[in-house]
Amino acid sequence: MTRDTLQERLAPWICTIALLLFWEGACRGFAIDPFILPPPSAVAGAFVKYWSPLLKNAWVTLWTTLVGFAIAVGFGLLLGIVIGWSRVIYNGLYPMMVGFNAVPKVAVVPILIIWFGIGEVPAIITAFLIFFFPIVVNVATGIATIEPELEDVLRALGARKMDIMVKVGIPRSLPYFFASLKVAITLAFVGAVVSETVGANVGIGNLMLQAGANFQLPLVFAGLVTLAVMGIVMYALFARLEVRLAGWAFRSGMNASR
């Protein structure tokens, strides 16, 4: 991409700092009770005081989310390719996939806890579900929308379906794939946290639940900030990876994401 100017690079930091200053100022100016809304300074204090449990629980949330993500990428790519493989399968399964995708995954968490009990497993599966359907739907779309002329060119040369998939279908679906990841990563933390809140004894969600029960509101907010930071970092990682692997899509007309 083009080189950012210094202003463009600094802009997100300045906005963030401005928000924090406004928050701090509002809390002090209106003398808001820290039990209702703790100022950023108190949240920072909670970070200093509780950095060890925060880190430990954030790590659990992160790895459960990432394990769910990894499984979703594997199965999602596979199923996406199968669905995109033929018109019939695509037409048959696509509406169902959209339907599954429309189900709020958070609503499934209680069922998962009944099935798998308290612990990391429901959190992993929740994250998996959140990633899985967008990946399938987007990869299938990328593959199913190959230009028919190009398919003709290759088929006339004796290309097998597998050749067309490997040479055209899968690379072509990458921009769709990353578009879905960037949406899913932020939702995945939601899923992991909800399932930790409902049925786990570790994780940021659980930490926030307990802190809330003890009226340690600064610690609850520290948990929220931790989640926000993890979300931003993961998003940025995927965005980086996207430019690496599917950077062509930004310049050619086929700009599915962003």
Binding site: E147, E149, L150, D152, V153, R155, A156, L157, G158, A159, K167, V168, P171, R172, L174, A246, W248, A249, R251, S252, G253, M254
Partner: peptide, 19 residues
């Protein structure tokens, strides 16, 4: 009876792969 393989094809849309 199947793809002839001795033919090359080109269309109105160049359909080159952007990657």
């Amino acid at each position: 009876t199947g793809p002839v393989k001795i033919a090359g094809m080109a269309f109105q849309n160049p359909s080159l792969l952007p990657w």
